[in-house]
Design a protein around this nucleic acid. Structure first.
Lengths: 160, 160
DNA sequence: GTATGACCTCAAGTACACTTGAGGTCAAAT
DNA sequence: ATTTGACCTCAAGTGTACTTGAGGTCATAC
């Protein structure tokens, strides 16, 4: 029978920790990337007597969220922020994930709004062939109408 | 009076080309980055008798789109694709920008959909504290239900 | 005519997000 | 006992997207 030190493509009970190979197969993330995420503190592992990593199952969720963030162009430093209040060592509670959830949703909302704004821009401006982008908030993200000092300026009429 | 070789913070008629410094001030993009974009073929310039760059005004649009793409995590190679049919040398026509527009919109739509899906996931899964992400298309983007071979696998019930 | 600021090229350096390789250990199977 | 595959550490390499610096030119101002 398969013992509890079963490595590689093991058969597991629902509470068994995962080897790095299993994590990799189940998340599609390379072992080297998992090592890397660990050095950044994005994930954590325990070690066996023989110094091999074992991952608690809730690490799958973290890795999945990291993967998704990458697909959306969110830098790992932002992921770090989003995970700030989610405990690494212990299985996170409802409340932990809900705090993280709120952070993620705020971040995602900003990005979605940016994209929607650009889509409107493209419809209204490139779409009509002028691409003036006179009113594009994305070009002046920090202060849409404020300081005329440094940083991106709106295109003037003559540039439209 | 200001001649047509006016460099620096010049006063321009609407058809005057822009110096790299003016481009930089008006787009918020560093001159070094403009050089870099030029080596990638994302933008182009003519040269004065003294070998200085002069940018046609429609280059402002390109730089603005590059800036926006960066904010959205779109790699420059994708921007290159999106610009594929927009002429560099001449002022693009309506039709040129409309072709580009359609490419951009397709790309943006994919990204927006990805984000919306993740938002739904977070509402349904992190939101309730379980974060099972069983049905998240973002985790299996290429083939949502297909091959069970390599790549990300769905989390099983036991991991929910 | 010379000083000043904007510009030029080219090479090297930086930050992020990893991958690859060398050299060695661990653990189940034969 | 030894082979095999999975794992370990650490250093160095890769690709993207630039920035920085050296050394020199260009153009307007005094």
């Amino acid at each position: 029978m398969s013992s509890d030190t079963d490595a590689g493509r093991a058969v597991h009970g629902p509470d068994e920790p995962l080897t790095i190979g299993e994590m990799s197969r189940r998340t599609g993330v390379a072992p080297s990337a998992l090592h890397f995420y660990e050095t950044l503190g994005l994930i954590a592992s325990t070690r066996t007597a023989g110094n091999q990593r074992r991952y608690a199952r809730h690490m799958l969720r973290r890795v999945s969220l990291i993967t998704v963030a990458k697909r959306l162009g969110i830098p790992l430093s932002d992921v770090q922020d989003a995970f700030a209040d989610v405990p690494l060592a212990d299985t996170p509670s409802h409340a932990d994930w809900q705090r993280a959830s709120r952070r993620w949703k705020r971040e995602l909302e900003k990005r979605r709004e940016g994209i929607e704004r650009l889509e409107r821009e493209l419809t209204g401006c490139i779409g009509c062939g002028c691409l003036s982008m006179k009113a594009c908030g994305l070009l002046n993200p920090d202060d849409a109408l404020g300081s005329q000092g440094a940083g991106p300026q709106r295109l003037r009429d003559e540039d439209a």
